[in-house]
C-alpha cells in the first residue's frame, strides 16, 4: 500500500471523525451531564462514571417552570411560521411567476431590512409596544415580530423554489384552461411541496432560537425558552445537572429537526446565492 492510499483510507477518515466528535462534544456533554445529580456533576471522580438519574428531568417544572416557557416557545414559533407563510407564499409566488421590472429590487430591499441591527430600534420598539399599543409581553407581539424578522428569508427561499418549477408545465396548464387557483393547487404546490416544507421547518427553527426580541420584549407572560435560559445565566456551579437537563430539553427537538433540513439551510442562509 503506498502512502497515498494509507492517507485516503485511514488518516483522512480518522481526522474527519475526530473533528466531528470534537464539534459534537459540547452537546454530548450537556446531555451526559443532564443525567447526573447536581452534586455529582461537579465532582471530578464522577466525571465519566456515575449513577444515572432522570430526576433533573422530572423536577424540571419545579426547578425552572420549564413547560410554561416551552409552551410559549411552541405557540410563538408555530404561529409566527404560519403567519410568515400566509404572507410570504403569495408574495414569492407572484414574484417568481409574474415578475415585473421591480421584482429584483423589491427582493433585495426586503433582504436589506434583515440587515438592520435589531439593537438600533430597541427603544422605539419598547416604547411603541409598551406605551402606545399596549401589547408588550404578549404572544401576539412576539408572533408578529418573529414573522417580520423571518419574512425576507422565507420569501427568498420560496422564490428560489418556485423558480425551479418549469415554466412550460404552467403554460401547458394555462393552455388547457386551468384557473389561477387550479394552477397553484394542482401544479405548483405538488412540485414545490418539498421546498415549502423545508422553508417552514427552517423558519420554525429560526423562530425558536431567536434571542434578542424574545428576551427584550417579554417579561413573564410571553417569555420563551431563550428568556428562561438567559435568566439563568449566573454561574450555577452547584446546579450543572438541572441546568443541563433544561438546556437539553430546550435544544434537543430543534437540533433533531435541524438534521432533516441541513441541505435547505444553505439555500435559506445564503439567499440562493450558493447552490
Amino acid at each position: 500500500m503506498n502512502q497515498k492510499t494509507i492517507f485516503a483510507r485511514f488518516i483522512r477518515p480518522s481526522l474527519a471523525w475526530a473533528v466531528a466528535i470534537l464539534f459534537f462534544f459540547p452537546i454530548f456533554w450537556m446531555v451526559f451531564t443532564s443525567f447526573k445529580t447536581d452534586a455529582d456533576a461537579v465532582k471530578p471522580e464522577f466525571l465519566f462514571l456515575f449513577t444515572p438519574t432522570i430526576e433533573n428531568y422530572v423536577n424540571m417544572t419545579e426547578n425552572y417552570d420549564y413547560w410554561r416557557f416551552a409552551v410559549n416557545s411552541v405557540i410563538t414559533s408555530v404561529f409566527a411560521t404560519l403567519l410568515t407563510l400566509v404572507v410570504g407564499v403569495p408574495a414569492a409566488y407572484a414574484m417568481a411567476f409574474d415578475p415585473s421590472r421591480h421584482t429584483k429590487d423589491i427582493l433585495v430591499w426586503m433582504l436589506s431590512t434583515k440587515m438592520l441591527p435589531a439593537a438600533a430600534v430597541l427603544y422605539p420598539m419598547t416604547f411603541l409596544t409598551k406605551n402606545f399599543l399596549g401589547i408588550f409581553d404578549t404572544h401576539f407581539l412576539i408572533i408578529v415580530v418573529l414573522s417580520l424578522i423571518n419574512l425576507p428569508i422565507v420569501i427568498w427561499m420560496l422564490f428560489t423554489y418556485f423558480k425551479e418549477v418549469p415554466k412550460e408545465i404552467i403554460e401547458a396548464g394555462k393552455m388547457d384552461g386551468v384557473s389561477t387557483w387550479g394552477e397553484i393547487k394542482d401544479i405548483v404546490l405538488p412540485l414545490a411541496w418539498g421546498g415549502l416544507a423545508s422553508t417552514a421547518l427552517l423558519c420554525f427553527i429560526f423562530c425558536w432560537n431567536e434571542a434578542y426580541w424574545t428576551v427584550r420584549l417579554t417579561t413573564t407572560d410571553a417569555a420563551t425558552l431563550s428568556k428562561l435560559i438567559e435568566g439563568n445565566r449566573a454561574p450555577e456551579g452547584l446546579f450543572f445537572g438541572r441546568l443541563s437537563a433544561v438546556s437539553t430539553a430546550a435544544v434537543g427537538p430543534i437540533v433533531v429537526l435541524g438534521w432533516f433540513c441541513q441541505k435547505q439551510l444553505v439555500r435559506g442562509l445564503t439567499f440562493g446565492a450558493v447552490k
Partner: peptide
C-alpha cells in the same frame, strides 16, 4: 452540523459554565 441549531442562550450558558 449540530452546533448550528443550538439556541444562542444555551450555547453561552453551556460553554461559560460547564
Amino acid at each position: 452540523i449540530s452546533p448550528f441549531f443550538v439556541m444562542p442562550a444555551v450555547n453561552a450558558v453551556l460553554w461559560i459554565n460547564m
